[in-house]
């Protein structure tokens, strides 16, 4: 699976693999291949978890069709435009 696969999809896949490994119908080659796939998903998921910087985007334009990077800092003072 590609790197942009979400955590949810990875965990679901690992669940499937664990369930398959608990069954008696696998042959050993299949079991090994599944196990390796599961380990790869775990590794990618751990890498994802290690990320530290939150990415915030903003939908802009009247229809919200464009996306821009958004900075949400503490430097804007307290109490926003209409203090939401």
């Amino acid at each position: 699976m590609a790197n942009d696969v979400g955590l949810d999809a990875r965990l679901k896949r690992i669940e499937e693999i664990v369930a398959a490994l608990d069954s008696d119908t696998l042959d050993l080659d299949e079991a090994l291949a599944l196990f390796e796939e599961g380990v790869a998903h775990l590794g990618q998921a751990r890498e994802m978890l290690a990320r530290t910087e939150l990415r915030v985007e903003e939908l802009i334009g009247p229809e919200g069709d464009a996306v821009g990077e958004m900075r949400v800092g503490d430097d804007e003072g307290t109490g926003g435009r209409d203090d939401g």
Binding site: G6, L7, D8, M70, V72, G80, R81, D82, G84
Partner: peptide, 19 residues
């Protein structure tokens, strides 16, 4: 979703709520 990938937020862009 227990493990969302992307979260959408609707609020005032300059609000304390967003921060």
């Amino acid at each position: 979703p227990a493990f969302p990938g992307t979260v959408g937020i609707v609020t005032s862009p300059t609000s304390a709520a967003l921060r």
